[in-house]
Measured scan of single mutants.
Amino acid sequence: ADDEVAKLLVDAYRKNDEDKLEEVKKRYNISDEQVKRLIRKVL
C-alpha cells in the first residue's frame, strides 16, 4: 500500500498539484514528514 500511496504523491508532486497532495494526505492520514519521505523513496 505504501508504494501505491508513494506513486500518488509523486504523481501529484510532479504535476505540482497541491490539491491532490492534500487529498492524498487526508485520505491516507499521513503527515507532511511522511509525504516527504515517501516522495524521496520514489524519486
Rank of each mutant, 00 (worst) to 15 (best):
A1L: 15
A1F: 15
A1E: 12
A1G: 11
D2V: 10
D2A: 10
D2W: 15
D3I: 11
D3E: 10
E4T: 09
E4P: 08
E4S: 09
E4Y: 15
V5R: 03
V5I: 14
V5N: 01
V5D: 02
V5F: 06
A6D: 04
A6W: 14
A6M: 13
A6N: 06
K7D: 06
K7L: 11
K7I: 09
L8E: 07
L8K: 05
L8A: 09
L8G: 02
L9Y: 01
L9D: 00
L9K: 00
L9E: 00
L9S: 00
L9I: 13
L9M: 02
V10L: 15
V10N: 03
V10M: 13
V10E: 06
V10G: 04
D11A: 08
D11G: 03
D11H: 05
D11T: 04
D11L: 06
A12N: 01
A12D: 01
A12Q: 01
Y13I: 12
Y13K: 02
Y13A: 03
Y13E: 01
Y13T: 02
R14Q: 12
K15Q: 13
K15H: 13
K15V: 08
K15R: 14
N16S: 07
N16K: 12
D17S: 04
D17Y: 03
D17P: 02
D17K: 03
D17H: 04
E18H: 15
E18Y: 15
E18P: 14
E18A: 15
E18W: 15
D19I: 13
D19G: 12
D19K: 15
D19T: 12
K20S: 08
K20L: 14
K20Q: 10
K20P: 01
K20Y: 09
K20D: 04
K20I: 09
K20E: 10
L21Y: 05
L21V: 07
L21H: 01
L21R: 02
L21S: 01
L21I: 14
E22R: 12
E22I: 09
E22Y: 08
E23H: 05
E23R: 07
E23C: 07
V24E: 01
V24N: 01
K26H: 07
K26D: 03
K26G: 04
K26A: 10
R27V: 07
R27C: 06
R27Y: 08
R27F: 09
R27P: 00
Y28M: 02
Y28S: 00
Y28K: 00
N29S: 08
N29C: 10
N29D: 06
N29A: 07
I30P: 00
I30C: 06
I30H: 00
S31L: 03
S31Q: 04
S31M: 02
D32H: 05
D32Y: 05
D32Q: 05
E33D: 11
E33M: 07
Q34E: 14
Q34D: 14
Q34W: 10
V35A: 15
V35S: 07
K36L: 13
K36P: 03
K36R: 14
K36D: 11
K36Q: 13
R37D: 12
R37Y: 09
R37C: 14
R37V: 11
R37P: 02
R37N: 12
L38R: 01
L38A: 04
L38T: 03
I39H: 01
I39E: 01
R40H: 13
K41W: 12
K41F: 09
K41I: 09
K41M: 13
K41C: 10
K41Q: 12
K41L: 12
V42N: 06
V42L: 14
V42Q: 09
L43G: 03
L43Y: 08
L43W: 08
L43P: 03
